[in-house]
Computed example of a mutant assay.
Amino acid sequence: MPINKAVLAAFRAASRLKPDVKSSYKAQRVAEEITAKLSIPDPRCRIDDTTAVMPDGYEVLLRVFTPLDIDFSFVEGFKVTEDSRGTILFFHGGGWVNGNVDFYTDACTTMALNLERRVVSVDYRRAPEHRFPMAAEDCYEVTRQLFAGTLLTDVDAENIVLFGDSAGGNLAAVVSLMARDRGAFVPRTQMLLYPATYNDHHYTTSLFDSVRENGEDYLLTSQDIVDYMELYLSVPEDVHNPYFAPLIEPDLSCQPRTLVITAEYCPLRDEGEVFAQRLADDGSDAQCYRVLDAVHGYLLYPSVFNIVKDTYRIIKHFLDGDELAQEGEPAWLELLGTD
């Protein structure tokens, strides 16, 4: 499904004119901070901040989004109650370098309201100030505390869903591997949106065609991914660590029920789909969908965009069994499922 020619031309121009990641990530952080200040609160969602203390004493900021059910009657006036079917622990994208809970506030509000679940967004420490495996260890420890019931007292561990986009999808998958390897808790469900799972995104040497097909003209370039990973690495040998690139883990058994969603015009498309297939091959319950006419990062688009609406339809089908029927032109491809 081709992208509109005018939109594609704009994508190409933006992709080729933007500065490289290593010289511009600080400026991007400033731009994200400015954008975050434009966020308008939604009265249907309560937002609270709390922290989780890491083993080294650092306090990781957590932003909690609770969907509300607001009723009005002339007798009782306004009545506000929490309307939550579980808890989503969310790890934001941004190449382990950019993004934070402020920048993702609108997306997490939309997520909480659409999925009728409380969302806990994790402000893990970012590279290059804090390199691998710091982000993964922060996310693991927050998850461990959430499962232990020490972060939020009313959490049902059976209804915790790990969710991440891009680098956050990498972190969600890594937390699940860590949980299996360390045995402290057992995640039941994870959702990975256009996740980074492999360790080579060079245009000429990558195993995946999507790096070459989508690696220059669709905002996130293959060189961007290489740069982000180099900023995240502590030492070159980290590229061989499954907690850096979970697709290289030889044994993907005993993993949560998993939903992988990829974007048609994303350089990370193929590795996400192969990761879903690997999970299924190793015995996990995995589903995978490719959203058509979509580029990397679209979760941050306004919720009126069809690709955002379609993504939440897929997620609600996965989490709640809602009907997933397409009408007219296909909006997504089901690549791997359990039906």
Results as ranks from 00 to 15, higher is better:
residue 58 Y to R: 07
residue 58 Y to T: 03
residue 59 E to S: 09
residue 59 E to V: 04
residue 59 E to M: 10
residue 59 E to P: 00
residue 59 E to Q: 09
residue 60 V to E: 06
residue 60 V to D: 02
residue 60 V to Q: 06
residue 61 L to T: 09
residue 61 L to E: 13
residue 61 L to F: 13
residue 62 L to M: 11
residue 63 R to L: 08
residue 64 V to M: 00
residue 64 V to P: 05
residue 64 V to D: 00
residue 65 F to E: 04
residue 65 F to Y: 12
residue 65 F to D: 03
residue 66 T to D: 00
residue 67 P to Y: 14
residue 67 P to W: 10
residue 67 P to L: 06
residue 67 P to Q: 06
residue 67 P to A: 09
residue 67 P to C: 01
residue 67 P to V: 04
residue 67 P to I: 08
residue 68 L to I: 00
residue 69 D to F: 13
residue 69 D to V: 09
residue 69 D to A: 11
residue 69 D to K: 15
residue 70 I to P: 06
residue 71 D to P: 06
residue 71 D to E: 15
residue 71 D to I: 03
residue 72 F to G: 05
residue 72 F to W: 14
residue 73 S to L: 05
residue 73 S to R: 01
residue 74 F to P: 01
residue 74 F to R: 07
residue 75 V to K: 09
residue 75 V to P: 00
residue 75 V to D: 11
residue 77 G to H: 09
residue 77 G to D: 12
residue 78 F to Y: 15
residue 78 F to H: 13
residue 78 F to S: 08
residue 79 K to T: 15
residue 79 K to A: 11
residue 79 K to M: 15
residue 79 K to G: 05
residue 79 K to C: 14
residue 79 K to N: 12
residue 80 V to T: 12
residue 80 V to Y: 01
residue 80 V to F: 02
residue 81 T to M: 08
residue 83 D to F: 01
residue 83 D to V: 00
residue 84 S to H: 03
residue 84 S to G: 04
residue 85 R to H: 07
residue 85 R to V: 00
residue 85 R to L: 11
residue 86 G to E: 04
residue 86 G to Y: 13
residue 86 G to R: 08
residue 86 G to F: 06
residue 86 G to S: 08
residue 87 T to G: 08
residue 87 T to C: 04
residue 88 I to K: 03
residue 88 I to V: 12
residue 88 I to D: 07
residue 89 L to H: 05
residue 90 F to T: 05
residue 91 F to D: 09
residue 91 F to I: 10
residue 92 H to M: 13
residue 92 H to K: 13
residue 92 H to F: 06
residue 93 G to T: 07
residue 93 G to Y: 06
residue 94 G to T: 14
residue 94 G to I: 10
residue 95 G to W: 03
residue 95 G to L: 14
residue 96 W to G: 10
residue 96 W to T: 05
residue 96 W to V: 14
residue 96 W to H: 14
residue 97 V to G: 12
residue 97 V to A: 12
residue 97 V to L: 10
residue 98 N to H: 10
residue 98 N to I: 15
residue 98 N to Q: 15
residue 99 G to C: 14
residue 99 G to L: 11
residue 99 G to H: 09
residue 99 G to D: 15
residue 100 N to I: 08
residue 100 N to C: 09
residue 100 N to H: 15
residue 101 V to R: 10
residue 101 V to Q: 12
residue 101 V to Y: 11
residue 101 V to F: 07
residue 102 D to T: 07
residue 102 D to P: 03
residue 102 D to N: 13
residue 102 D to S: 09
residue 102 D to V: 06
residue 103 F to P: 06
residue 103 F to G: 03
residue 103 F to A: 12
residue 104 Y to D: 00
residue 104 Y to V: 02
residue 104 Y to C: 04
residue 105 T to K: 07
residue 107 A to G: 01
residue 107 A to K: 00
residue 108 C to L: 07
residue 108 C to N: 10
residue 108 C to P: 04
residue 108 C to K: 01
residue 109 T to V: 15
residue 109 T to I: 15
residue 109 T to S: 07
residue 110 T to L: 02
residue 110 T to N: 15
residue 110 T to G: 12
residue 111 M to P: 04
residue 111 M to C: 10
